[in-house]
């Protein structure tokens, strides 16, 4: 299967894994990665900079209608939901919080699932609420590949456990194996 898009969701305990993923990716990594991470809504700056420190690929907080390019990571901006529209661009929204979260992982996952279908890999990491579980279900139902961080490897396992209850997840991996999996996607593409 040729996967062309990766969407990653995470909350408490996921930051280090995301920086681990970004630092392991080669400069030539050529899939777009969407990051929907729970964050403080009033802190507009600093997060993308922190993620960029060790990343060899470009990490951006997209503006609305920003075109999606290969080999770039797109971080959902604070206090906005992030959607993906047909035509391959990002659409933002200020709709109410979902699961007390804006950005909501469920919204980004469901939108990516609908738009990219079987070309999508959805990855859910450590977190302290149930956001992302229904999104993983939609990725699965649309033919995408679903991966959750092994709850025993999570700093907080509420989020990944909820996803495992919501749908039949394809792979349960430790953070190291998740990093290997993503790096290998570039080779097998």
């Amino acid at each position: 299967m040729s996967y062309k898009y990766i969407v990653i969701g995470g909350s408490a305990g996921s930051f280090q894994i995301v920086t681990g993923i970004l630092s392991a990716l080669p400069k030539t990594f050529n899939l777009p990665i969407f990051l929907c991470l729970h964050r403080l809504k009033h802190i507009r700056t600093g997060f993308v900079e922190a993620l960029s420190i060790k990343s060899k690929i470009n990490v951006v907080e997209p503006c609305d209608k920003e075109f999606i390019r290969q080999g770039k990571a797109y971080l959902a901006p604070a206090n906005y939901h992030m959607y993906f529209d047909l035509g391959n661009f990002v659409s933002l929204s200020t709709e109410p919080a979902v699961n007390h979260s804006r950005p909501s992982i469920d919204i980004s996952f469901a939108s990516a699932a609908f738009t990219y279908k079987s070309k999508l890999v959805g990855i859910l990491l450590s977190g302290a609420n149930r956001d992302g579980a229904m999104g993983m279900k939609e990725i699965k139902e649309n033919g995408g590949l679903t991966i959750v961080q092994d709850p025993n490897d999570c700093q907080v396992k509420t989020m990944t456990t909820a996803a495992l209850e919501a749908t039949n997840i394809d792979h349960v991996l430790t953070s190291d194996k998740i990093i290997d999996f993503i790096v290998n996607l570039n080779r097998t593409k």
Binding site: S91, S93, I107
Partner: peptide, 9 residues
């Protein structure tokens, strides 16, 4: 309208 968010609403 942006169809992705309209669809969800």
């Amino acid at each position: 309208y942006a169809l992705s968010s309209l669809k969800r609403r």
